[in-house]
Write a protein that binds this DNA or RNA. Sequence first.
DNA 1: ATGAAAGCGCTAACAA
DNA 2: TTGTTAGCGCTTTCAT
Lengths: 343, 343
Amino acid sequence: MTGIRQLAQHLNLSIGTVSRALNGKPDVNDETRRRVLDAAAAIGYVPNQAGRSLRQGNTNAIGFMIELGADINGNSDTFFMGVFDGVQSVLARHHLDLVALPCPTDENPSAYLQRMIGRRLVDGLIISATHRKDPRIDLLMGARIPFVALGRSETPGDYPWLDLDFDGVARRAIDRLVAAGHSRIAAAVPSNDINLGFVFLDGYKAALKRHGLPFDPGLVMRVPSSELGGYQLGHDILAMENRPSAIVLHYELLALGLYRQLAEAGLQPGRDLAIIGFRDNPVSRYMSPRLTCFRLSLRDLGISLAEALLANMPGYADQYPLGVVRRVVPMDLVDGRSDVPPA
Amino acid sequence: MTGIRQLAQHLNLSIGTVSRALNGKPDVNDETRRRVLDAAAAIGYVPNQAGRSLRQGNTNAIGFMIELGADINGNSDTFFMGVFDGVQSVLARHHLDLVALPCPTDENPSAYLQRMIGRRLVDGLIISATHRKDPRIDLLMGARIPFVALGRSETPGDYPWLDLDFDGVARRAIDRLVAAGHSRIAAAVPSNDINLGFVFLDGYKAALKRHGLPFDPGLVMRVPSSELGGYQLGHDILAMENRPSAIVLHYELLALGLYRQLAEAGLQPGRDLAIIGFRDNPVSRYMSPRLTCFRLSLRDLGISLAEALLANMPGYADQYPLGVVRRVVPMDLVDGRSDVPPA
DNA sequence: ATGAAAGCGCTAACAA
DNA sequence: TTGTTAGCGCTTTCAT
């Protein structure tokens, strides 16, 4: 393994000079710098991160914690892949690398996070699947680790977050359904305590109220955020005495199971039940009839997350004078055929 | 930040003793060890990984490189999530952590990998989306980094890999279709040079030959491995003069776009075109009619990958005497309704 | 503009 | 059984 010592020896320079040349410090002769850079490239030298980290106290890496539990995460590979790409596009400018930290299903997320923090594997963190009360946030604030949450939370504190527009989606879906003549509109909400469920439900309630419609707790359907949850949802709806004529969904893949359940009962989305899904995604795009839902740029979301994080990291904050970002990202309605009116 | 020095001071012990106690070395008084462990837990001490890495020359982390390019990755939704969980279940036993390394779409995978290797971020690597000739393999062998490839390759060398049973799937799909009376059977293969395409095509050709059926290059349909690719595939099939009566797919989400294209043409999977998909997944499970495809335990795949990797890592090889693993993981047929015979 | 040297936190070899 | 100390690779301060 080639270290800086070998490189310096090979060039008949001191390791100090080589280090300065490599790191773009001003007080190096241009000719010397060129020699060093050339030799480093030729020899394939890459600085050992452990040595740097120990000396500088940072790692030049950013972590993105994801949870592997199917009913917890509420998002799929493709969701994160898109977001990662956006995050990296920003980090790359600062020579920061992104590492994804997958918390195993059988491990407590806070314990996992604590281990990662303790190891000092990363300089900053993006956490996802934020819960209503999220102890990870307390942990990160306590350890003074820069972070940003993907998903707002009730946990108090002056920390940055970004979130999808769950309440806006609920509101606009209701607006659209009411305009189409619906008055019995159900809402599918998560069965766990992930915060987006509360936000979505609040948006749903507020929209009903604004339209002068009564809130019926029996129309709030709690199901796991998965395809299977959608299937169960369909089952539950079919079993109701007084079925809703429309439903709004909090999660992108619920529609898939719901479509299936309706098909098995000989019912058709749009004609027999108006459905407005959540996030437009590759799967929803190929369902028949096409799902009415909301579009979002995953890449832009990733970019915003990275910028919000850097805005809170010493050494980068001056380049991203955003303060403590707390922002909902907008989503655009995608017209489909799944919410044709009843009359 | 609490380091080992503070911890030792707090206990009136030398840092050497504390280190030995923490690392389970034998020559420590039981009582002393208990005190150290208690204090460490109370104070929330976690050893600084940079210090350890520098001293020991390892990082106690394993990397899993994934590629973010949609048409390359060939996997979807929760594929990696499932595999990660299996990998972690093995690594956890050895206090190794898993970090996912997402290669940005706009970066060359070999260059990215080289950076990660150079940084010495991880002790071992799992690489995915293996290409027919994969320079990453040469890189890893050259750097003597323990690794395992998810996907076999033509790149020569004595390195471990695991792969899905692409040829077996092609063979068994053909067997099934021929038994049902089909003779014009198409194959959807990837449009890039990912190795699974070659393996799949070889299996397809061999199976045809065994059944005495002619190989018609016009029945080999090259499409991107995505939902959209499936949609294009449907378009291409509908445009053919002499349409096949059946098709086998190399990628799990092709069926989605294909179903959609058929539906738009008023055709029905199973009745008008027999379809055998690739991997059973949450999405395929909710398509109508249910897709005939092949099941695989992602968790077991992850476990096997981790074991194959550890079998090639100094310090772990003795616990996993597997040699250089080169193995295809079996997949089970899942009966659906998408391949009902023509007669 | 360059060299010499200290020291980041930790483990392991050696001494006691 | 415990304490002492060298040194992993690197950056940075201080001399020169």
